[in-house]
Design a protein around this nucleic acid. Structure first.
Lengths: 150, 150
DNA sequence: ATAACTGCAAATCATTTGCAGATCT
DNA sequence: AGATCTGCAAATGATTTGCAGTTAT
């Protein structure tokens, strides 16, 4: 499980978000938030749903979908479309902004995901905002590599 | 329609690929390749399928799927997962390497795709290769923006 | 001739939706 | 009390699959 102070903080954030938007504070939403913040890697809806069940917290998959959408809107998770199988999620608060190197074999199977940070991304973003007049809210950068021989 | 010499080149590439992999040279495959290279933006399978029909080249959607997979393996198209609606494709030969700004509404619908090039990406890639010892073969960079008020 | 390809329809699978009953406020 | 949320099952929609007939080699 994630550090208690992190859990507390993200619960506060969710609380504020719900107050602001007049949403109900259900047991399901807070529990799912807690479990999401105990996951240390990317997960899809099915994995999270099974994980909750394992931990004896039974919810419907519909609620998992709904709650992840809520957490997404509250900025508490990030959603990735790595492939056309299913969307992947990861916690996004207290989780330094990072990008990914995805190591895949010839068949496209993901062997390893390496996270990295590079400040130049932010500079590119700023320049693009200046050029386009758009407000960029987020980004995804993936580098794809073949495995090393070793 | 794309420039004749480009069409010729990509047909040659597909030809070689088919020879190498002992695949059949069907009318459908070459026609679809031609139409793909006449598209000037990203498209999904449904759009391409409708486009083909408009141009009086009727194929089944299954063949469109199969052929795009083939072109993907041959390195002639690039596949993108902008959202969880449908995969998007674009021609990838004689098409300068570029990245994308994706303008989406609150519901995640793609409103506009802006292409850009920034040399700093290549520098980041080189540094990552040095640090990790991996050989990076490709990348995807997406910036996400909300639409402008106008 | 025969193995691969196409087209059609059915199957699959992630996600969404509709609605009845439960539960926050 | 009343609106929202949850859970279930059915609907949806992109993609895949199975198979019969067609076509490239």
């Amino acid at each position: 499980m994630a550090k208690p102070e992190i859990i507390k903080s993200v619960k506060d954030i969710l609380n504020n978000y719900m107050n602001k938007h007049q949403l109900r504070k259900t047991q399901e939403r807070f529990k799912i938030l807690e479990f999401v913040y105990s996951m240390d890697k990317h997960f899809d809806v099915d994995e999270l749903h099974r994980f909750l069940k394992e931990k004896d917290f039974v919810v419907s998959k519909a609620t998992v979908y709904n709650t992840l959408e809520l957490l997404l809107n509250a900025g508490l998770v990030k959603k990735h479309y790595f492939n056309n199988h299913a969307a992947y999620y990861e916690k996004s608060f207290f989780n330094k902004t990072h990008d990914h190197i995805i190591v895949r074999d010839e068949n496209g199977n993901v062997l390893k995901i390496i996270e990295f940070c590079d400040p130049r991304i932010e500079l590119i973003k700023k320049d693009l905002e200046k050029i386009t007049g758009l407000q960029i809210e987020d980004h995804d950068l993936y580098f794809f590599a073949k495995p090393n021989k070793n």
